[in-house]
Amino acid sequence: MPTWHRTKEIWIHRHSKYGHLIDRYWWATLDLLRLRKLKLKLGKRPLVAIILSEQMGDIIACEPVAREVRRRHPDGHIIWFVRRPYVELVAHHPDLDGYLIELCPGHREQLIHSGVFDHIYNLHLSHRKCKYCPDDPVNPNAERIGMHFDNYYDRGDLLYSFSQVAGLPPMTDDPKMYIPESVRQRVDTLPVPMAPDGSGPIVIHCQSSYAPRDWPAGNWHQLVQWLLDTHPYPVVEVGINPVVTIEHPRFRSFCGQLSLLETAEVIRRAHLFIGIDSGPAHMANAVGTDGVILLGRLFDFVNYLPYSGRYKRGEGVSILNNFDHPCAELPYSWVQRAVQQRLGQPKLV
């Protein structure tokens, strides 16, 4: 007989599942009504969907898709499907007319197959399921070209691969971030430390949403202490959870304190960005900040590069990868040497 604890887990799961399904069908119905009303107002103008709802780095890397879709549909009303935490990344794009908040892949599938859209550019790979919905999303373009979760990085960077998944030619453009003046003004009010010569700080990002991408906390502490001891630049940590706990007048953590676009603006002002493969590294690429990026084996991908544009061309970036080893095994000496090469001759402070 099942234990009380197991019975409780089953009923909690059922409650969550059916509650989610009710929300999914309710919001999909409302969204469909809004879209049909919008379509009537548009008249002959096409209603176009770009679908890439997560993750942060994927959305930033694939920003050029919005520009390409606008080129193809200059009179279209273009909407980007996005999960709520990432709305900022698309809300200010000049080539988009709006966005639609995706509740889950099942919600997305219901709208995709409604027939309301005239053109759909779906950048998602097949079989990325919701844990509650019965839908098994399939992207026909991805299936046609044989692009799956186990091989997409073998084909090229994120933009190069996902643009083909969307049915577009392979793209290699430089990504951009659109940061409104209001965000820049908010960052102006933050106590972001500056170097004596007026240049920006060194910005670090140490922890991703997937632990195998990360570099050990002890290495980050050693690197930050070395930077503070030998260079005049302040060091700022960004991200969600702080990793570095050093107390020093030229070190500051903004972890958990900034919005996505505020984080991008702090990175834009940086003298140098140092980070693991995660969303902020894509921000650095998109805002034109020089970087030192730490990579390592990811699943079965050994020699992969997530970035298009400037970082793919090797401009202003040092990309470190101890091939066939996880990022955690990247030697500290490699990182320190790469940072030193980017900063130039040490200046004792």
Rank of each mutant, 00 (worst) to 15 (best):
His5Ile: 06
Arg6Lys: 14
Glu9Asp: 11
Glu9His: 07
Ile10Tyr: 02
Ile12Thr: 02
Ser16Gln: 12
Gly19His: 01
Leu21Ile: 14
Ile22Gln: 03
Asp23Gly: 05
Asp23Trp: 00
Asp31Arg: 00
Leu33Phe: 13
Arg34Thr: 03
Lys39Trp: 09
Arg45Lys: 14
Arg45Thr: 05
Pro46Val: 05
Leu47Tyr: 12
Val48Asn: 14
Ala49Phe: 06
Gln55Gly: 10
Gln55Phe: 08
Asp58Thr: 11
Ala61Thr: 13
Glu68Lys: 07
His73Glu: 13
Pro74Gln: 14
Gly76Val: 05
Ile79Gln: 01
Ile79Pro: 01
Trp80Gly: 00
Arg83Val: 00
Arg83Asp: 04
Tyr86Ala: 01
Val87Arg: 15
Leu89Gln: 11
Ala91Gln: 06
Ile101Leu: 04
Leu103Trp: 00
Cys104Val: 03
Cys104Asn: 13
Arg108Phe: 03
Ser114Leu: 05
Val116Arg: 13
His119Val: 12
His119Lys: 15
Ile120Cys: 14
Ser126Trp: 06
His127Tyr: 14
Arg128Ala: 09
Lys129Ser: 10
Ala142Trp: 02
Phe149His: 09
Asp150Val: 01
Leu159His: 06
Gln164Trp: 08
Val165Pro: 02
Pro170His: 09
Met171Glu: 08
Thr172Cys: 05
Tyr178Val: 05
Ile179Trp: 06
Glu181Gly: 00
Ser182Cys: 08
Ser182Val: 12
Gln185Glu: 15
Gln185Trp: 11
Met194Asn: 11
Pro196Leu: 03
Gly200Leu: 15
Ala211Phe: 04
Pro212Gly: 03
Pro216Gly: 07
His231Lys: 13
Tyr233Ser: 01
Pro242Lys: 10
Val244Gly: 04
Val244Tyr: 07
Ile246Glu: 09
Arg250Thr: 10
Phe251Ala: 03
Cys255Glu: 11
Gln257Gly: 09
Gln257Trp: 02
Arg268Cys: 01
Phe273Ser: 06
Asp277Gln: 01
Asp277Ser: 02
Ser278Gln: 02
Ala281Val: 05
Asn285Asp: 11
Ala286Tyr: 01
Val287Lys: 10
Val292Asp: 05
Leu294Asn: 04
Leu298Thr: 06
Leu298Met: 11
Phe299Cys: 00
Val302Met: 06
Ser318His: 14
Asn322His: 12
Asp324Tyr: 04
Cys327Ala: 14
Glu329Asp: 13
Pro331Cys: 08
Val339His: 10
Arg342Cys: 04
